[in-house]
Amino acid sequence: MDRSLHPLAWWIWAGALAISAARQGSALLSIALVGVVALVVIFKSEDAPWAQSFRWALRMGLWIFTIRTLTGILIGVPIPGRTLFSIPILPLPSWMAGIRIGGNVTLERLSATAHEGVMLAAIVALLGAAASLSSPHRLLRSLPIMVYEFGVAVVIATSLIPQLVASTARIREAQRLRGQDIRRLKSWKRIALPLLEDSLSRSLDLAAAMDARGYGFSRRRSRYRPSTWHVRETLICASALLALAWPPIAIIAAVTALILAPKLKEDVLP
């Protein structure tokens, strides 16, 4: 099997891309960038629980975009321009002058808020891509032992999230089989409680296991198979860092990763 890319390389790459997208401030560039990065995730991520992070980040980005646009339409400072439609203005007390709820929605105002929404969503998606391309466990191993508490937290969080998804499905199924309507919002209370207990006991188990195996006991830590930094990593990171200077290069950096990164789909033998 091909060796995977150094996990830090993925984070530097994604971070640099996110910063350059934010600096350029062009919705078009951001959307194109997320598109290419999506290809990288599809072709280069492992079949592992954390590979789903990108999908979740995309969903979250969509939510952010929707909420940002809605609030932009409802609340805010009027921007003059071509009026598309208008919403009745909600009367507010005089001390809240300067804030307006409702009113005319102009094309300019709509495009400005939508644009901001796209930028935010793109940044979330790019960081999500890094999370789904690099194994959190391997990332933890490349971090110095000084950040021990942080390390425990990362391991617990990253192994918990996929477990949380699995437990939710399991508990929802059980509740449905008890004949409960699980679509109603109220049913979440019935699911949340067993879920909380389940995840809490799992996290404690994991923390105890790490403790018992001496994690963080010694200040020095050796590496079994250290993640190595090759020309590949340098090229990918360098192209992304160049994009900091001139943002449009970001697209080239994303394509570089698409070409250079190893493919890690695992072949599970039957």
């Binding site: 592992a48 194994s135 466990h137 391997r138 191993r141 391991v155 192994s159 799992r202 188990d205 994991l206 105890a208 296991a209 790490m210 195996r213 001496g214 994690y215 963080g216 006991f217 010694s218 020095r220 830590r221 050796s222 590496r223 079994y224 198979r225």
Partner: peptide
């Protein structure tokens, strides 16, 4: 619930890494 890494080999090595043993 107690596994710390994702690959068998890395899981086996985890404890030794924390003890700072030589590769």
């Amino acid at each position: 619930n107690g596994f710390v890494s994702d690959k068998v080999e890395e899981e086996l090595a985890f404890g030794m890494e924390t003890l700072n043993l030589q590769p």
